[in-house]
């Protein structure tokens, strides 16, 4: 456990605190040294650990797939190429099943989301104490390893998807068509336009919110359980965290898959005329 024998509450709060760099009202641009300081920074702060690890995982994904892609042979593939191709074909198959329009961006988008989120989630299998303890040795006070347990990361991706939904809705249907669709569904009558608009706009806004919060919620809850298990004495904690980790191999993949599929489905409905 970190620090000088913290209480369980302190321990949990410490492990759930991001390493924050931002503009503090009193200290100016600096690293936050407590949760309170981080909160005081308001919007003008950045979670260094979330950004760092998510970009690291993104680069790992790009590097790995780019390496295989450059060396890709049409002949007999190597082991790494086979593995990458398996992921590739899985995503391609999913996209073909769920997306009926013609858009060359959707499949690479789905691949990026799936692998990137999978890799970020995968960091969760690193023992909860390892990263904070290790970084504490170098004077870094906080280190929350898993980017997807930070709502900023998941909502950031969900907002990116939301922008694409809006962009393609307008591109495919035209601005007028998009507004018309919002106004005349589900009730195709002029007197119900305000009602329809409220319903549809709520429905539209809920898409990125549910997308981001679902991933965040699952990952965060899992992380909290890991931290709670870590509070148990070491000779009993493994009886719980091993099964929980094994279970999370499923959750990690499943959540990455759900995020990807829902993104594809949303984009598909953005491309379809109703």
């Amino acid at each position: 456990m970190a620090g000088n024998n913290p209480t369980p509450t302190e321990y949990i709060q410490h492990h759930l605190q991001n390493l924050t760099f931002g503009h503090h009202p009193e200290n100016g641009w600096s690293m936050a040294h407590s949760a309170q300081e981080a909160a005081d920074m308001g919007f003008w702060a950045i979670h260094v650990d979330t950004m760092g690890w998510s970009i690291a995982m993104g680069i790992l994904f790009i590097w790995l797939f780019r390496k295989v892609g450059k060396a890709a042979t049409t002949g007999v593939p190597g082991k790494l190429q086979s593995a990458i191709e398996m992921v590739f074909e899985f995503v391609e198959g999913t996209v073909q099943g769920a997306f009926h329009g013609k858009n060359p961006l959707v499949a690479p988008l789905a691949l990026t989301l799936f692998v990137w989120i999978f890799l970020m989630n995968l960091l969760k299998l690193v023992p909860v104490d390892l990263a904070p303890e290790l970084f504490a040795k170098f004077g870094v006070e906080y280190m929350k390893l898993v980017p997807t347990t930070d709502p900023n990361a998941t909502l950031g991706m969900a907002l990116g998807v939301f922008c694409l939904i809006i962009y393609y809705s307008i591109k495919v249907k035209g601005a007028g068509g998009f507004v018309k669709e919002l106004s005349f569904t589900p009730f195709n009558h002029w007197s119900l336009i305000p009602f329809n608009l409220v319903m549809e706009i709520i429905g539209l806004l809920v898409k990125p919110l549910s997308l981001g919060l679902r991933l965040f919620g699952n990952m965060f809850a899992g992380e909290v359980i890991f931290i709670l298990i870590a509070l148990l004495p070491f000779w009993v904690s493994w009886t719980l965290n091993v099964p929980w980790a094994i279970f999370h191999i499923l959750v990690i993949t499943l959540q990455a898959f759900i995020f990807t599929v829902l993104t594809v489905v949303y984009l598909n409905s953005a491309h379809e005329h109703h």
Binding site: L16, N18, T20, G22, A38, A39, M41, G42, F43, W44, A45, I46, H47, T50, M51, S54, I55, G58, F61, I62, F65, L105, P108, L109, L111, T112, L113, W116, P147, D150, P151, N152, A153, L155, G156, M157, L159, G160, C163
Partner: peptide, 21 residues
């Protein structure tokens, strides 16, 4: 667990990775 610029940062990272991919 504050919502802050990380959100924007993540969006930019997302866009770049998708573009590169």
């Amino acid at each position: 667990m504050n919502i802050n610029m990380t959100l924007i940062g993540q969006m930019i990272a997302f866009a770049i990775f998708v573009w590169f991919c």
